[in-house]
Design a protein around this nucleic acid. Structure first.
Length: 285
DNA sequence: TACCAGGACGTGC
DNA sequence: GCACGTCATGGT
């Protein structure tokens, strides 16, 4: 671990990790996270009110931040992805094997829970570049401005801040009909300690999340996977429907049944494998 | 111009 | 319970 002093005020530290199982580009580009941008040798990654600079050099992925403990956990670096990749390949499904081999450095992030709830409400029936733009505008308008060694940036706003907005604000920045969903859900989240959700089991948590306006089964599964690290969830979107038909010869139409099919097949590895399939399909592997 | 994007909701049956 | 129309908006 290294300490870097940028000026009198701002300190940052860094760590590195074997890049074979920590590919920063695949990890960021696979659709699980929306707040990052290219910067010098790599990427700036924003989460809640924090920022990190991540890049790869000499077979090491290096992360610099004022809070490296947060980002060590954020990138799920205590987890053994060699085992996960081997498990994925063992199924002998061509698309899955190709994707797992190419993307073995893709890691499932442990993101901020409130940020994921609002981000994936915005994601419904939307495309990734647009989702990123809407979230960026929300941070710019409502988030607290922060300083860092990599320049100033804006934090993701609190639920209180979102709850106090008029829905017309969210419409004005391009969120469309999701404006009410954001405000209504923010009102519920601010009244309930988010930590209470951590005590629930998978089924109870999904039930609680889907009771919020704008959160259905698929969005709940994304929140379960990307924020609560519930790896037995398998979000089914339009891309996964395509995978189901083209690569698994599926015949079911109901997304809940498609989800059930995959979870029965992949169990505790569902979430990881879903990302290999989703990203592999998008990359046309 | 029509269709698509990490879908969810309300209505009608 | 299930099927279907509708909901903004920018990209292709």
């Amino acid at each position: 671990m290294t300490f870097l002093c940028v000026n009198d005020k701002i300190f940052s530290m860094k760590f590195d990790f074997d890049s074979e199982y920590f590919n920063i580009e695949h990890t960021l580009d696979c659709g699980q996270v929306f707040r990052f941008k290219k910067h010098e040798k790599g990427y700036l990654v924003y989460s809640a009110d924090k920022v990190a600079y991540a890049y790869t050099e000499d077979n090491k992925t290096i992360v610099e931040s004022e809070d490296i403990n947060y980002f060590y956990n954020y990138f799920d670096l205590n987890n053994d992805y060699k085992k996960i990749v081997e498990k994925a390949i063992s199924y002998n499904i061509p698309l899955l094997t190709r994707s797992a081999e190419k993307c073995k450095g893709l890691r499932i992030l442990r993101q901020n829970k409130e940020e994921m709830i609002f981000s994936f409400i915005i994601s419904q029936n939307n495309n990734i570049p647009r989702i990123k733009g809407i979230i960026e505008k929300i941070c710019l308008a409502l988030g607290e401005e922060k300083e860092s060694a990599f320049g100033n940036y804006f934090a993701f706003p609190s639920s209180q801040k979102i709850a106090n907005c008029n829905p017309s604000f969210f419409r004005s920045i391009g969120a469309g009909y999701r404006d009410d969903y954001l405000v209504e859900t923010a009102k519920k989240i601010q009244d309930c300690d988010i930590k209470k959700l951590e005590t629930l089991n998978d089924v109870e948590l999904k039930k609680q999340l889907t009771s919020y306006k704008g959160i259905g089964a698929k969005v709940a599964d994304c929140i379960l996977l990307f924020a609560f690290n519930k790896t037995s969830s398998f979000p089914v979107d339009t891309w996964i429907e395509k995978v189901y038909v083209e690569d698994f010869n599926g015949f079911e139409k109901d997304r809940n049944k498609i989800c059930e099919y995959f979870v029965n097949l992949f169990g505790e590895f569902s979430g990881y494998i879903q990302q290999y399939l989703f990203y592999g399909k998008r990359l046309n592997l």
